[in-house]
Design a binder for these strands. Structure first.
Length: 570
DNA sequence: AAGTAACGCGCC
DNA sequence: AAAGGGCGCGTTACTT
């Protein structure tokens, strides 16, 4: 039975073409044409459970979703895999569209990737540019077959059995992420506009009738600020004007950051902090945001799989990954439904323990609260110190009182600390580090070189340890191995979870993922199934740990809550 | 008028 | 002496 099916939607209408493939990418039989692509795909999914091969989920999957009775199980997303392979091959600048990939294969001029679509373009699929970027005269299905076969060849050519099988796992997990991202964009996060409204009104005053006007509470704070700073009018949103206003009262600030304002002994400082808090909510997540991003009781952000070099996701529009905690009050399950909110407890230090094979740290990571356990063994029970020290080790921080904490960690956990320090050295020397599954970091870039120029050691002490930019890259690679391996794990979790959720079906409906944020998932579930979903999340986390880290003794516990309102989780 | 830099804050 | 990883996004200030 053929393992894969390539799929290409028609440029117009609901039809498309398909072609069965072997695992290696050789076409089997003749191509199929259908006038109802979604229906045909659904039939083939039920009968053959293939791995679907498409140019990109945006064009190959998202348009089918509304008409598909069930979600698809597996895919190979050519654009995401192309990006992974190009990075693996060290070709960082190269475009990754289907058209670019096929042009490279045929020795044609390689088209640049299109800039990412804005929200207006997303709505307007009819006139959306053809994002496949195919060179003229090349049939899209032919291109899919050629590029897929080439990618399978490149995957087979990866040196080392272990490295190759890990990278294949990465390819599968990244592709599963494409499925999950498209599905979450389709389903949306339950969002109660009336609760959001009420919250905004409590904080800011009623919604201004005239758009662009300041809400009452902000206007009032502006006035009080002005009075507290000598009465001269100034714009509290302008850094320069704020600095000047404070300076005229004899308060010299180097910035308008909140932490700096907190240390200022002047009545205006507190007002300024409050103003910044509220104006941020108004500007970033106020009524304008709601109008733009919430429709039909759902917040529908657009996720960008692999949008961060570490493999973390990014989002486009709506700031999906930066929703302030206070706004979680507006995220409420539908009647008769629950939100199962689960996050991996202290994911990154556990990843460090598993990555480095530090058995002492792994033992510490066996129980519930890793920082507490670490504090008990190494920091006389001081949890804050333990946390600060470990985070410092993972981020490359060396300031303040961190040094003694780091020394303690180095002594207790030489293997783990040696691992991050080796990664930092590799980075400082200009080398490449990779995640557990083989996602590589970018090479030293102009950004780091520029930083070297602009920061050219004004102290003049000369760099026996190298310059600021060298150390910055060391911090980057030090953190990369952990952040990117945590992203590997999170992708594996997501893949395992969506597969397991697809097997659950209750009378009230089917539980589905509605949110994913680095180390946290939210599942919208019929109330009667919520506990089962919680157990499924735990099982998925165990599967992810086994897949990514093999037989490591490190545990990756999920802290899970079943709630109606997102704000009530933890 | 439109694009870019800098700032500063939200999330992990 | 100081030295903290990754993003998105909205604002002002400045450049072209």
């Amino acid at each position: 039975m053929p393992a894969r099916i390539a799929l290409v939607p028609d440029a117009h209408g609901r039809g498309g073409r398909l072609h069965r493939l072997t695992e290696q990418g050789e076409p089997v039989g003749a191509p199929l044409r259908t006038a109802e692509l979604a229906a045909t795909v659904a039939e083939l999914e039920a009968a053959e459970h293939p791995r679907w091969v498409w140019a990109a989920a945006e064009s190959g999957y998202a348009p089918l979703l509304p008409a598909l009775p069930r979600r698809l199980g597996r895919c190979h997303d050519l654009r995401l895999v192309e990006a992974l392979l190009l990075a693996h091959e060290g070709r960082w600048g190269a475009p990754r569209s289907l058209g670019a990939a096929v042009a490279r294969l045929r020795g044609l001029p390689v088209p640049a990737d299109l800039p990412e679509a804005g929200p207006s373009e997303v709505q307007d699929t009819l006139f959306a540019p053809d994002r496949l970027q195919l060179p003229p005269g090349i049939d899209p299905l032919t291109a899919v077959l050629e590029v897929h076969a080439d990618q399978q060849r490149r995957l087979r050519a990866i040196e080392g059995d272990e490295a190759r099988s890990r990278f294949r796992l990465l390819v599968a997990a990244e592709s599963a992420g494409a499925l999950a991202a498209a599905e979450m964009a389709e389903d949306g996060l339950p969002w109660r506009t009336e609760l959001h409204d009420r919250l905004l009104t409590e904080l800011l005053g009623p919604r201004p009738h005239i758009p662009g006007t300041q809400p009452a509470r902000l206007a009032e704070l502006s006035v009080r600020l002005q009075q507290a700073l000598g009465g001269k009018p100034f714009n509290p949103d302008s850094h320069t004007q704020v600095l000047r206003a404070f300076a005229e009262q004899g308060v010299r600030l180097t910035s308008t950051r909140v932490w700096e304002l907190r240390e200022v002994d002047h009545p205006a400082a507190e007002l300024m902090i409050r103003y910044k808090e509220l104006s941020r909510i108004h500007a970033a997540h106020g009524w304008a945001w709601q109008d733009a991003w919430v429709r039909g009781g759902r917040f529908r952000p657009e996720y960008v799989v692999g949008g961060v070099v570490s493999g973390r996701w990014a989002s486009r529009g709506g700031g999906a990954l930066q929703i302030p905690r206070i706004l979680r009050r507006a995220v409420v399950a539908d009647p008769g439904w629950r939100l199962v909110v689960a996050d991996a407890a202290q994911l990154e230090p556990r990843v460090l323990a598993a990555l480095s094979g530090d058995t002492a740290l792994a033992r510490t990571a066996a129980g519930g609260d890793l920082y507490q356990a670490l504090a008990a063994t190494a920091f006389q029970g001081d949890r804050d110190k333990a946390k600060l020290g470990l985070l410092g080790a993972m981020y490359g921080q060396t300031s303040g009182d961190i040094a003694t904490l780091l020394a303690t960690l180095r002594q207790r956990y030489p293997t783990a600390m040696g691992y991050v320090e080796a990664a930092a050295r590799t980075g400082e020397e200009g080398g490449i580090v990779t995640s557990r599954l083989g996602r590589p970091c970018p090479p030293p870039s102009d950004a780091w070189l520029d930083q070297a120029d602009s920061a050219a050691e004004p102290g003049g002490e000369g760099g026996e340890q190298g310059g600021r930019s060298t150390r910055a890259r060391g911090r980057f690679t030090r953190n990369f191995v952990i952040q990117a391996s945590a992203a590997d794990w999170a992708l594996a979790l997501l893949a395992a979870l969506r597969r397991r959720l697809a097997e659950l079906q209750g009378p009230g409906g089917r539980p589905h993922l509605v949110f994913f944020q680095h180390d946290e998932v939210v599942v919208h579930s019929p109330a009667a199934m919520a506990e089962q979903v919680a157990a499924t999340v735990t099982a998925a986390a165990e599967e992810a740990s086994r897949l990514v880290f093999g037989a490591s003794p490190v545990q990756f516990p999920m802290s899970t809550a079943v709630v109606e309102c997102y704000a009530d989780a933890k």
